[in-house]
């Protein structure tokens, strides 16, 4: 039983990891087909995994309703919105548009999800301003550099800034294309090295956190 619970998952990880690391270096139709098919498999598995997240959200709000904690009514609103969207979605056969005409799901998407999502993200514009005030108070040389770069980019990205200070457009482009590129490149190289190291640890069975806790670990 210990073999099934502990060694078998580690063996599956090892075999899959080694097979698909090697696959990259075998430019053969069979190898290409294997990666295409297994990538499709991953999409199917992720569909099943969604149920885990769904169960978690159901559980959190069911507990709130059961215990009638303050604001439990909002959990009912959440359930109702979820259920209504699912019913409408199935009724529309998962399509937002059919022959150019908007379906009920499309209506829900255009007039509920898009405004809610857009507003949620746009509200950050207000909070980002107060965060900027706290972060950009030029208390050190580094903070001053950050402040100047941010102001230049903000000026260079709007027509008013470009009208008042036409050179900000060129400076913004240089900052984004050269300085920002250099930093992103360095960070990307560092992160990728970490990713390779972590992947190797997972394949070799040194990193096992993904298997979850428990005595069999």
């Amino acid at each position: 039983m210990i073999f099934l619970k502990r060694q078998l998952p580690l063996a599956v990880t090892f075999v899959m990891g080694v097979a698909f690391a090697i696959q990259y270096y075998i430019p053969h139709p069979v190898s290409e087909e294997a990666i295409t098919n297994v990538s499709k498999w991953m999409q199917i598995i992720s569909g099943f995994a969604l149920a885990l997240g769904l169960a978690s959200i159901f559980h959190v709000h069911a507990v709130k309703i059961k215990r009638q904690v303050p604001g439990w009514g909002y959990s009912i609103v959440l359930y109702a919105a979820m259920l209504a969207t699912i019913i409408v979605g199935f009724w529309s056969k998962g399509e937002t548009r059919v022959n150019g005409a908007q379906t009920a799901l499309g209506w829900l998407y255009d007039y509920s999800m898009v405004p809610l999502q857009g507003t949620m993200f746009s509200i950050l514009a207000f909070f980002i301003a107060s965060a900027a005030y706290r972060a950009f108070r030029a208390r050190s040389r580094e903070a001053s550099v950050l402040l100047v770069a941010a102001v230049l980019v903000m000026m260079g990205r709007v027509p008013l800034g470009q009208f008042l200070l036409p050179w900000t457009w060129d400076v913004t482009q240089w900052l984004l294309n050269v300085v920002n590129s250099a930093v992103r490149r360095a960070i990307l190289i560092g992160v990728s090295m970490g990713q390779v190291a972590l992947s190797l640890k997972i394949i070799l069975g040194i990193e096992r956190a993904y298997l979850g806790g428990g005595r069999d670990q």
Binding site: G47, L50, L54, A80, A81, M82, G94, L116
Partner: peptide, 28 residues
């Protein structure tokens, strides 16, 4: 809070519908 919970509910419902039609029906 009402808007926030509606947003979560609709987003989750939409993900379920999308997963059902694109993954379970079309791919499987």
């Amino acid at each position: 809070k009402l808007g926030e919970h509606l947003y979560v509910g609709i987003s989750v419902g939409y993900s379920v519908v999308l997963a059902w039609h694109t993954v379970f029906l079309r791919l499987l």
